[in-house]
Amino acid sequence: MSKAITQAEKPLLVFWLMTMTLLGVFPLDVVLPSFPALAEHFHTSTTHIARSVSLFAIGFSCSMLLIGPLSDRIGRKKLLLASMVVAILGAVGCLAARNTPQFLFFRVIQAIGCGGFILSQALVQDLFFGREQERLRIAMATAGGIFISISPVLGAWLQLHWGWKASFYAFIALCAATWIMAHRLLHGGFPPTAPGERGIFRAYAKVFANRHFASYATISAITFACHFSFIVVSPLIFMDQLKLSPHEYSLTLLLYGAAYVVGGLCAGVLHKRLAAATQMAVGLILIAISGVVILLLAYLFGLSTPTVLVPMLLCTAGTTITRPMSNSKAMSLFPDNAGAAASAVAAVLFIAGGCISAFISTFTHQLSTSLGLCFLILSLAALALNSWARRHPHVL
C-alpha cells in the first residue's frame, strides 16, 4: 500500500490531525468547570467527581501504551476507528450514568478510547516526510497548548448555557465527525508497519535501548513537565493564593494559550534558520531564563499575577520551541515502529509531568519558588542531554 498523499489532500489531513489533537485534551479539561454541577447531580462531593480526572489519566495512559505498538502490528486505520467508537460509547455511558461509580466507570471507558488519539503522532510519521513532519509537529504542539487553555473556558460556557451534559454531547459530535473523516482520508487501510514484531513490550525495549531516542524523549518530557506543572498548580496560585475569580483565572489561561501561539510562530521561524539541536537549545535556554526570572521577581516583588505570569509565558514559548523538535527527532529514529515510538514518548511525558507536578504541588506555600527551581534544574539537565546528542550524532 502506498502511503503517498496528494497535495489536495494535505490541508484536509492537517485539519483532521488538529481535530485529533483537540480531542486528546478536550475531554479532560472541558469538564473542570462542571465539577460542582456533577457533584450535585450525583449527590456526592466534588472530591469524588475529581477522581474522574485521575481515573481518566490512568485509563488514557494504559490505553496508549497498548495502542501504539498494536498499530504497528495490525495497522492504524482499524485500530483508530475502533478506539473512537469506544470513546463515544464511554461518553454516552457518562450521560446515562445514574450514580457516581457508573459515571467513573464510563469515564475510564472514554479514556481508553481516547488513547487512540496518540496515533496522530504516528500518522504524521506515516503521511508526511522530512521538514514537513517537523513543521506539522510544531503546529500540533502549538494547537495542543491553545486547546488546553481554551477548553476550561469553553467548558464554563457550555455549563452556563446547557449544563454538564453539554460537554459530553460536544465530545460525541466532534469524535463522530473525526471518525467519518478518518474513514474517508485513510484510504488503503494502513496495513502494519512492523507485522513481524513479537510481543508488544519488546517494541518498547527496542526503542528505549536506543540512547538517542531516550535522550530526545527525556528532553520532550522535561519541557512537557514544565508546562504541565504550571497547569496543575495554577489554580492553587491564582485562585487560592491570589484570590482571582474563576473568570479572571480563565483569562490567565487564555494568555497562556497566546504564549503558545507566539512560541509556535517563533518555532516556525527558527525551524527555517537553525539546526534542530540549536533550536532545542534556544527553547531550553528560555525555560532556564524563566526559572531565574520567576525566582527574582518573587524575591523582589513578592507573589502577584505579573510575577508568576511573565516568566510562565517565557517558559511556554520555550516549551513550544523545543518539544516538537525533540518529538520529531525521537520519532524519526523508528519509522517502522512509529506507533510504539509515539506511545513511548507520550508515556514518558505523562509520567514526568505527573511526578514533577505532584512534587511541586507539595510545596503549598512556596509554589512559585519550587516552579522556578524545577524549571532551572530541569532545563539545565535537558541542555546537557541535547549537547550529548549533538556531539554523538546517530548513525543510521
Rank of each mutant, 00 (worst) to 15 (best):
S120E: 03
T6N: 12
S343E: 07
V261I: 15
G318Q: 09
G302C: 08
P306Q: 07
A340N: 06
A258M: 15
G318C: 10
T364I: 13
L95A: 02
M331K: 12
I294G: 02
C94E: 09
A288Q: 00
T322A: 08
M312E: 02
L174M: 14
T142V: 02
A389E: 04
C266A: 13
Y256Q: 14
L396G: 15
G155S: 04
I294T: 12
L385S: 03
F106T: 11
L371F: 09
A37V: 05
A221F: 01
I377C: 13
V282G: 02
A4Q: 14
A267G: 04
I49M: 10
I138F: 08
K165Q: 15
A122Y: 06
L373I: 15
L385V: 07
F230N: 12
A173E: 00
N337F: 08
A82F: 12
C374A: 11
L296M: 14
A342E: 05
R391W: 10
K329S: 14
L28S: 07
M280G: 04
F60R: 05
L186E: 00
N210W: 06
N327E: 00
V292A: 14
R137V: 12
K78S: 10
G24W: 10
L376T: 14
R390S: 02
H227T: 13
A276T: 10
L79I: 03
L300A: 12
A341S: 15
R73Y: 05
A281L: 01
R135N: 13
V31G: 04
C175G: 07
A166M: 14
Q102K: 02
L396W: 14
S120Y: 01
G75N: 04
T142Q: 06
A352I: 08
G188I: 10
A338M: 01
T252E: 04
A97Y: 05
S370F: 09
G318R: 11
T307E: 04
L186M: 09
Y169N: 03
P311E: 07
I148M: 15
A91C: 11
A352T: 13
Q366G: 09
P152N: 01
T319G: 10
R184W: 06
R73Q: 14
T19Y: 00
L295R: 11
I5F: 02
A50I: 07
P11Y: 05
T46M: 15
S379E: 05
M64V: 02
Q110R: 05
F60L: 15
G188C: 07
F359G: 10
F129A: 10
S343P: 11
F117Q: 13
G196F: 00
L371W: 05
C266I: 08
L244N: 03
P335N: 00
G264E: 04
R184H: 10
M20S: 06
R273D: 09
L154K: 04
W388E: 06
G199V: 01
